[in-house]
Nucleic acid binder design. Sequence first.
RNA 1: AGCCGCGUGGUGUAAUGGUAGCACAAGAGAUUCUGAAUCUCUUUGUCUAGGUUCGAAUCCUGGCGCGGCUGCCA
Length: 538
Amino acid sequence: MTTASETPHLDFIREIVAADVSAGKNGGMVVTRFPPEPNGYLHIGHAKSICLNFGIAQEHAPSSRCHLRFDDTNPTKEETEYVDSIIEDVKWLGFDWDDHLFYASDYFEKLYNFAEQLINKGLAFVCDLNADQMRAHRGTLTEPGRNSPFRERSVSENLDLFHDPVIYRILHADHHRTGSAWCIYPMYDYAHPLSDAIEGITHSICTLEFEDHRPLYDWLVDHIDGLPSRPIQREFSRLNLNWTIMSKRKLLRLVKENHVSGWDDPRMPTLSGLRRRGYTPESIRAFCKGIGVTKFNAQTDMGVLENAVREDLNKTVERRMAVLRPLKLVIENYPEDYTEEIEVINNPEDPAAGTRKLPLGREVFVERDDFAEVPPKDWRRFTLGAEVRLTNAFCVICTDVIKDSAGNVIELRCTYDETTRHGKNPEGRAKVKAAVHWVSARHAVSASVRMYDRLFTVDNPEAAAGDDGDFTSFINPKSLEVIENAKLETSLAGADPGQRFQFVRIGYFIADAKDSLPGKPVFNRVVTMKDGYAKQGK
RNA sequence: AGCCGCGUGGUGUAAUGGUAGCACAAGAGAUUCUGAAUCUCUUUGUCUAGGUUCGAAUCCUGGCGCGGCUGCCA
């Protein structure tokens, strides 16, 4: 049942598409395209565009489709490695182009013929001006610009607007697909609208910076004969996420200068980085849906992305216990050399996830941060004489604190209350305020855990660097902290690469797909838990 | 001081001439074997000055602010 309040809101692009469909334009068909240039890896900003273009096509199925087209008109920048990564990333995000995979370079011959058509019509000409001369003729902010002396005639009403935009340039460079077949290559402004038209695109959706190019887009699709469709271009604002950067050129620099381990470094905003970090395609799609589509130059908070993955993982992922910074806790009234197995729920949000057995012995590890010798106000965790519940087990009272000669706390002693097993709290007994996670010392497996944090120390690195500053000076030196000897519950040793968990009370983690070995997983922190306590402290 | 586009709580995003709503963030409480999740409540907004109108976030004009454009990049 759909009520009025559940009617999904249409963004302005979808409104235009819907209006065109109901007006019967293009025979009711909707054909969009996602047109990356294969000169870098896809990032979260591209995800916005992918979700928009493929999403619109899905919403108008079956009389619709979305093409994946590589905009490979500049052989000096483009590589097959990027093509492969882009294909992988779009698939991973959950979209399918069926057999509509295209390359602008497939159209070089057609585009060349179109250019001849323009020349024959007197709408285009070959210009011998060099770059500087051409710049001079183009005009300035205050002057209108002059015709090239090589343009022997004036034809179109649009020429005043465009000052003879370049549509081809000479480039003696090998192309990743066409090799040395061409020494002239079409410019984006020429190739894009015509590629759209060749493919029968109906709605060519791009970002705001192309808005100024729209008259040229229209001019071209109106002046070439024999085009199968008359696409329209509409523009929306690209994604800006704070605490990171979205410029492909700058991301490339991070990789080339080894500020990160590669395009798929889990701190990168690339789709391959987010994937390795542990983000799910579902969470990224939900994020893209949530941020909307407008022409407003927005700055989206990283917290919105983080919230999206928490929301997804909270519902879908099994819980495990892991102690990152271990402190030994000895349960003095617990029998020595005894192990019991506790049956625990895998995911309280999903009964279908079932249960597992958790071993428990006399000595356990607890989180160092969960003990305070001098507790702050409202402290609910370990401190001398206070009672705390060991999650899934029983309540204990800390009876003794053991220190080394330097005064560091090296061990805690406690006694447990048998009547509080399995979450029981006998009648009349004061309720324990907190439950903390733990791992049985004898059964714990050691692992290294990578704690990722924001890549930059400022919320807008590019703005902070300014025009002549260097954004790399704002790289967060603490964006990666590796914990080598975290203590994990036994079952985690068998985690599959790519498997995600919630480490209770700590955050969401994924067994790294590259560095995990059989029986020896390495974990990446996807995102922390929300921490209401830490917030209080601020 | 050209052209194009955009201005709604802290951040985003709705309201398409008729009750300014939603999400995230923030705050208070309830609940809790995760200081999570969940639930309830709360704070905060139409850039500005005029105009049109019974009525303006919405339409018009000026101002201010922000972004884009001045590659033989895309």
